[in-house]
């Protein structure tokens, strides 16, 4: 029996990040950011890194929050798991939501916890009617508890499941329909997953329910090969965004106009200048897309 979900027409705080480029906030850059106050739209953090009682992480995030909008991007709620999200963990996130008033809260279509413990990775799930209902219930619990709309991110995957009977896009659409959540479109994940499973990333982007997207992610990945010599891309977040992903990104925003866009660079973190330059590349494309959107609107009126 499916449990009824709460009425998602109720008013919840939605994503209100500026339609500009942002970057993932790293401890290595706290001082640079606080001293130079760079012209950048927003910063994103993993709430799990701010769950201590005090100390430098909260000190710097508080200062940065005074000048910039913040997005909380969770990695620990295990939304795709078979058991409900941990109440303790939801409570820890609520404390941060109340304290920092983020402009957006997002999580992943993945799981990370099981009876044995927390795996510290975003793990895949079969896309079935059963998991669609489970994920929808979990998102409903989280949104009700936080009083906010969640953005759900499309995953990078390396394997699939014989049980799956949904296409990923249809699965995401169904979850949006059932829960009223939004989506976070990770264009690098699209490229990684489509390459790994030999699908066409352009047609994935073209079919994606763009009207539900509140935020875009761009990041770097590591190339490898599987046992049969097929390309296997790994979502490593340890380098620049590749040209093919930039092209796919341009295709995305040319369809829908500017959307808040994040550069994710979590490992082998570069200097602030390198990361900032990467964000400014996205910013230029967002500006161009805004101009193009205005022209199209003008042409329609004329």
């Amino acid at each position: 029996m499916n449990k009824p979900l709460s009425d998602h027409k109720v008013e919840r705080v939605k994503c209100h990040l500026p339609k500009r480029a942002g970057v993932g906030l790293k401890g290595q850059h706290y001082e640079d950011i606080c001293s130079s106050k760079p012209d950048i739209g927003w910063f994103e953090v993993h709430p799990e890194n701010y769950m201590g009682a005090g100390g430098p992480p909260h000190h710097y995030l508080t200062r940065i929050r005074e000048d910039y909008p913040i997005s909380l991007h969770g990695v620990g709620l295990s939304i795709g798991g078979s058991t409900p999200p941990s109440k303790d963990h939801m409570a820890r996130i609520k404390i941060l939501v109340d304290r920092y008033q983020p402009a957006s809260f997002s999580e992943h279509l993945a799981w990370s916890s099981h009876e044995a413990g927390y795996f510290n990775d975003l793990l895949p799930l079969p896309l079935t009617e059963q998991t669609c209902q489970t994920v929808s219930e979990h998102i409903d619990q989280i949104q009700t508890y936080l009083g906010r709309t969640l953005l759900l991110e499309n995953p990078s995957t390396y394997v699939e499941f014989t049980e799956s009977d949904y296409e990923e896009i249809e699965f995401l659409k169904e979850i949006v329909k059932r829960t009223g959540c939004g989506l976070l479109l990770d264009v690098n994940n699209v490229y990684v997953s489509c390459t790994n499973h030999q699908r066409n990333p352009e047609s994935y982007i073209d079919k994606f329910p763009i009207e539900a997207v509140g935020e875009i992610h761009l990041g770097g990945h590591a190339p490898d090969e599987d046992d049969l010599g097929n390309p296997l891309l790994i979502d490593a977040h340890d380098r620049e965004v590749i040209e093919d992903v930039w092209t796919l990104y341009e295709r995305t925003i040319s369809k829908c106009g500017p959307i808040p866009t994040l550069i994710e660079w979590d490992n082998d973190v570069p200097s602030w200048d390198v990361l900032y330059a990467e964000a400014m590349r996205a910013e230029q494309l967002l500006k161009a897309s805004a101009v193009q959107t205005m022209r199209q609107a003008h042409d329609r009126v004329a």
Partner: peptide, 18 residues
Amino acid sequence: SVRSLEDNKRPLKRFNVY
């Protein structure tokens, strides 16, 4: 249940990423 591509041959290296 774990599968790689349509023919489901040898997903070991893929699973080992996780």
